[in-house]
Simulated scan of single mutants.
Amino acid sequence: MSPALATLDWNHAWDWFNDAPIRVVATIVAAVALRWVLHRVVSRAIALAISQGDRDKQGRAGRVLAHAAGWDVERHRQRLSTLGTLLRSIITFVVAGVAILTVMSLVGIPLAPLLASAGVGGVALGFGAQSLVKDFLSGIFMIMEDQYGVGDVVDVGEVVGTVEDVSLRITTLRDANGVTWHVRNGEILRVGNKSQGWAQILVDLPVSYDADVEAALTALDRVAAAFAGDPAWSDKVLEAPTVLGVESISGNALTLRMLAKCISGEEFGVQRELRRRGKAALDEAGISGPSPLAIPPGTGGVR
């Protein structure tokens, strides 16, 4: 028998093996099991919230109102999935950190100096990475509050554009000129979302000063009623357009105004269609447009 084996205290070795390694293994197994259980709970909660949201939005009226309030089903799913991923990452980080510290304590590594050094380093990192922490926290709250999502047209102060990507640190926008903007979430102090909720549009139709106003308004009332009952457009408006009446009077024209509420993103199409139908209805009723201003003789239109 070798001298090393002869001097080995087998009882002490067995006690050590029976104590620390088993506790280490038990800690790791418990951490893995706890992480799996918590991830399972988060996944089930997210799936339940998504299915509940899908059931709440069934039916044409429900879909229109849901879209009008910014509760699009696919967007709802994306937001909940992002929150689920964030929660699972936090759970993994916390469980792994506690497990590592527990294992280090079991094998006899002193934690006090390590925690003191980590505290000093954390303070230094906190001062140096304030903007980074601010960006991440702002991104978390933006996602949780559903302030905007991919595809929305937003005004963040410095730029107005379509959201192409939202992460915890950066929001990517593309403006009307095709320029891509990468905006840090911590620098966004206000957000104007032009795609969330409903939009209100105004349609002005000028007619001749001498036109029959009552006949013109009656024709536009028929247009509003027919528009709300048209299957091609009824899912895009929240209610029948309203004929407000005479908006303004100028030297040679009266301006008639219509108002409509529609789901966001459809306002330009609804506005163009109402203007086209209003023009056709006024022509059919014999209501002419304003005549051009007369130019005094000899001026040639130039002063």
Score class of each variant (00 low, 15 high):
S51M: 12
V183L: 08
A118E: 01
P21L: 00
E74L: 14
A99E: 03
R184C: 01
T242N: 01
R60P: 12
G149L: 14
W36D: 06
Q58K: 12
M142N: 08
I140W: 03
A225Q: 03
L205M: 06
G84E: 15
A20H: 01
D221V: 09
N11S: 07
V154Y: 05
A118Y: 11
W36R: 02
V243D: 10
G289F: 11
G151A: 04
G59Y: 06
A31V: 13
R88G: 13
R257A: 15
V24A: 09
T92L: 14
H67L: 15
D135Q: 07
L101W: 06
G301R: 05
T85S: 08
R190A: 08
A31D: 06
G245C: 08
S138W: 07
V29W: 02
H39E: 02
D135V: 07
G149Q: 12
I50T: 09
V183K: 02
S167C: 06
P110A: 07
L137E: 13
L244K: 05
R272M: 04
L173F: 03
A281M: 03
N18V: 00
T27I: 11
Y209A: 09
G119D: 02
A219P: 03
W198T: 14
L106P: 00
R44E: 05
A99M: 03
P290A: 00
I100S: 06
Q271G: 04
R277P: 11
L86Y: 09
L244V: 09
L256Y: 10
A228M: 08
L115S: 12
S43G: 14
W36K: 14
T299Q: 04
A13R: 00
V133R: 03
E187G: 08
T85W: 11
V302W: 11
Y148M: 07
A116Y: 15
D210N: 12
A45F: 10
N18M: 10
L259Y: 04
G126E: 09
G161H: 15
S291M: 09
V179N: 08
E266W: 02
H12L: 12
G121E: 01
L168F: 04
V246K: 02
G298E: 01
I287D: 06
N185R: 15
G151F: 08
R257L: 08
A124W: 15
V95D: 01
L202V: 06
M104Y: 01
G128F: 08
T162F: 04
G84L: 13
A228T: 11
L106Y: 01
T172P: 01
M1S: 13
A124N: 07
S248C: 00
T85H: 11
S138R: 05
D210T: 09
Q200S: 12
R277Y: 05
P290R: 01
A112H: 10
G122A: 07
L115Y: 14
V107M: 02
